[in-house]
């Protein structure tokens, strides 16, 4: 069995309307079952890297493999391996949670029975029992974030990409999301996670990479990094490595 979930070799990506590479010389390995955190200042390239890993962006050079499958060449096969929770609300606001889950479940290739069983579980876990048939546009931000995650884990993916999954939610929704992610990871799903909530990341991630200006600056377990840089927490480490200046201007 391959124990490398994600392998990135010498990755380079340039946006079509730009001349400078947004990502360059990226090498990264994420093992199966890991809870991997990808951090960096705004505009560092976190979302771009996630989008390359999920096949949303076509990289120009290098290689990204999910369980040994090159993302570029095997889109359909690779797409079966992972779930994705983007920053944006990725569902239909006109539909109810049940209708959204039924639609995306069908597109994941799940059969009716599996969709029904998983939908019941997720509706219960994420607290939609009373609103399962109401259109999503009436939901609060926290409820929408929970539904975003529910759809991302619908097919019980081997890898789950999470791009700032808890942005703009209250403490209750955040705890529900983090708690569910830990449970999912215990069942074998590899998590690849980006966030600006560093205390949340400390709680969730067992390995961390810091990306600055499209390059991986450090990549190690959190205790190792804190020891090397003599810091007590991720926030101090982050400031030490990236500086105090604005990075997105």
């Amino acid at each position: 069995m391959i124990n490398i979930a994600v392998s990135i070799q010498n990755l380079e990506f340039i946006y079509p309307d730009q001349t400078d590479a947004c990502l360059h010389g990226i090498y990264l390995e994420v093992c199966t079952g890991q809870r991997f955190g990808l951090f960096g200042p705004n505009g560092a390239g976190k979302t771009t890297l996630i989008n390359c890993m999920t096949g949303l962006l076509n990289y120009q050079r290098g290689s990204i493999k999910l369980f040994g499958n090159e993302v570029k060449n095997n889109r359909n096969e690779v797409n079966k391996l992972f779930g994705f929770v983007p920053q944006e609300f990725s569902f239909y606001q006109e539909l109810s949670p049940i209708e959204n889950l039924a639609f995306f479940g069908a597109l994941y290739g799940m059969n009716k029975a599996a969709i029904r069983a998983k939908t019941e579980e997720l509706i219960d876990v994420f607290g939609f029992s009373d609103v399962s048939n109401k259109p999503v546009h009436k939901f609060s931000g926290g409820m929408k974030r929970r539904l975003n995650l529910a759809i991302g884990v619908l097919n019980t993916p081997q890898i789950l990409f999470l791009d700032e999954p808890t942005v703009g939610v209250d403490i209750h929704s955040r705890q529900a999301i983090i708690s569910y992610l830990k449970q999912l990871n215990q069942k074998g799903t590899t998590l690849i996670y980006t966030s600006h909530q560093l205390n949340e990341a400390e709680d969730l991630c067992d390995k961390i990479a810091l990306i600055v200006d499209g390059k991986i600056l450090v990549n190690d377990s959190l205790p190792n990094l804190l020891g090397i840089y003599n810091e007590k927490g991720l926030e101090g480490l982050f400031i030490k490595l990236t500086g105090k200046m604005y990075r997105d201007i």
Partner: peptide, 17 residues
């Protein structure tokens, strides 16, 4: 323009469907 399209592109099915 919506997020749903991002998800559609990461699903194991073609946008042609």
């Amino acid at each position: 323009l919506s997020g749903s399209f991002i998800r559609l592109k990461t699903l194991p099915s073609s946008y042609l469907i």
